[in-house]
Design a protein around this nucleic acid. Structure first.
Lengths: 200, 200, 200, 200
DNA sequence: TATGAATGAGGGTTCATTCAT
DNA sequence: TATGAATGAACCCTCATTCAT
């Protein structure tokens, strides 16, 4: 494994450690171990611990936008769009070997400086995307009126919290979790007969 | 201020720092500063950093159980019980000078040893309380059937995530946030005419 | 030993190590050893290695100005002033337990930032003081015309280089070195009969 | 460029870096950069950092002896010999692309082991050469009696310090600096009418 | 020759903790 | 109680050096 692949593998290994111990709790030594390198060897690939976090976050954002946003942005109906978004977002958190890469986006440690601003801007963009979705759905009479902000953060809370409790080997499949969360949040919101599209 | 009051004040100051910087990111120096003590002075009041975290968590659990659980456990109707619980839990996170004490319960850093087991048991008890609530509501035909586990963790995700985005001086009051979240989660779940009790 | 005295003792010990090994070559460990402290213990007294260097340099400048400049600035005759200055400066470099503190002023490592600017300004002030002395001596017809700049830097080179070769237990006393250097630089410069003051 | 030329070019580039940052402050990486090589590439040309310093010093000594000593050793009159020596030594420090190579001879870092002994022996030889010059001049009645040691080290201090302050693009030319320093040190020493040779 | 990758040793610095006063 | 001083352990990071390619 060489070049960009190698680099990504390092980001992913590091993300797993940071996810498990937190940014401040994770040592460069532990991260290096997870990468099968010595500390000094790891530094051949990264600039600093903080920069490593930044790289993981950018990578996570890229992944998230490619795997979630890119697939749902084009959906015309706002309710279907939000539901598809929730489905994909939940699965991004529950399955796939890169889940930690995206989970880290919500790490306590905040990036300083320019990188932090750019990550926050992209996070904010996602929140806004959700808010706009709810606004649009309300405007079209597809759902009952609610605060788009509260709805967006409820959506996020439900989805992101999943990482903390979901176990792939548990009783519930992530298909079931996704379906149920979508049901919980949207079924009660949708105004029946508001559209030709069947939502349930 | 002396005795137990003093001790609680220290726990609360420490909780604020740990909430802001994370357990690993918070320094004993910073905590001491926040308490108006020197490092060595602080050690007259605490046993160790980890024990301090444990104390805060026990204190937080006590507060949570007194302010939330104690007030809602007696509510006969499971839906009303869960709604009241959400309302109180959200407000515990958004207002009050001790919010950090309870927020820390979900800190990344987990307590080790016996204290950790006891805190986890109490957290688990809360999750179970919520699951039982949803189960009971389903059994009584008050709400549509959903996975009680998914419902409980959705409840928790919505509520706990609030700490990350809610600003007391923002556009939304916590009254509004609580009302809207209750609406989002329960209105769609409740089976109309399932009870004499008006839920909205 | 406590307080400011203790602090000065640390600066002096550190100066000895830095003088012997150079700033980059001296380790904090070695400096701590010389102070009879552990590394962490030393950091109780200093802010950083660079700041330690800055402190030593400021201390050295203070010493130099108090022991050399303050004693000669008032001398009316410029030649006598420069000669007295050379005498004191040489002895500051050859004797006294604090010699390293002043020798470090000419360390290769240059301070960065504000501290560096302030030290350089004080060094420049000394060069200018010497240049003015030679200018004044020329203007009064006390010495033959020479470039004041070259004269000032020759003065400095002779004096400062002394640290590199002079041995207190060698054949030459510092009294002798000072007298001979003054002789070498000034005897040939002074215009005979230029003043009532006998210079030799 | 190949072979010995290439090697010398590397020594010269390295000397520039080491002169600018000091031996301990200069990194192999920085030296490699200055040579237009990678670190590993540089190691095909050098044995170790310390050995590189040794090579530079030997090269510098060779240059110095060829450019300075070789040209003045044959001068019969000791005063003229010393003056010519000062002239050449100053210019070696102020001009020429190899000046750093000779300046490094006075680096703080001292070579260890055999190489160190050989370099020190050659340095000592130069000091002795100067001392003998002054002794001889005194013996012949050409200059006033002074300590040859103090005179020799004054000579060296004046000359070597020049590297620290002289700027090729400054107001003073190195011709002027050399002439003035020779004037400063020798004019006052020389006994008028001591020789047929005009010294000024 | 050249280099990307790797490393053991060590550098400066910080941290939680202790203790004499 | 309180604190200034001290410390062992660990942390992030850099360095001179090596080696497979």
């Amino acid at each position: 494994m060489t070049g960009p692949e190698r680099h990504q593998a390092i980001l992913e290994s590091a993300a797993r450690v940071i996810c498990a111990k937190g940014y401040d709790g994770a040592t460069i030594q532990e991260i290096a171990d997870a990468c099968g390198l010595t500390k000094a060897g790891l530094y051949h690939h990264i600039q600093s611990k903080e920069n490593l976090l930044a790289e993981i976050m950018f990578y996570g954002m890229d992944l998230f936008e490619a795997e979630v946003l890119a697939h749902v942005e084009g959906i015309e109906d706002p309710v279907l769009r939000l539901m598809a978004c929730m489905d994909r977002n939940i699965k991004m958190v529950t399955r796939g070997k890169c889940k930690e890469v995206t989970v880290i986006l919500h790490e306590h440690a905040t990036l300083t400086g320019d990188a932090g601003k750019r990550i926050n801007a992209r996070k904010k963009k996602y929140v806004t995307f959700l808010e706009r979705g709810f606004e649009e759905a309300i405007a079209r009479g597809r759902i009952r009126p609610v605060s788009p902000t509260v709805a967006a953060y409820s959506f996020l809370g439900m989805v992101l919290w999943t990482y903390k409790w979901f176990r792939p080997d548990g009783k519930l499949s992530d298909e079931r979790v996704a379906a149920d969360m979508i049901d919980l949040l949207f079924t009660g919101l949708v105004v029946q007969g508001s559209s030709k599209v069947e939502t349930r």
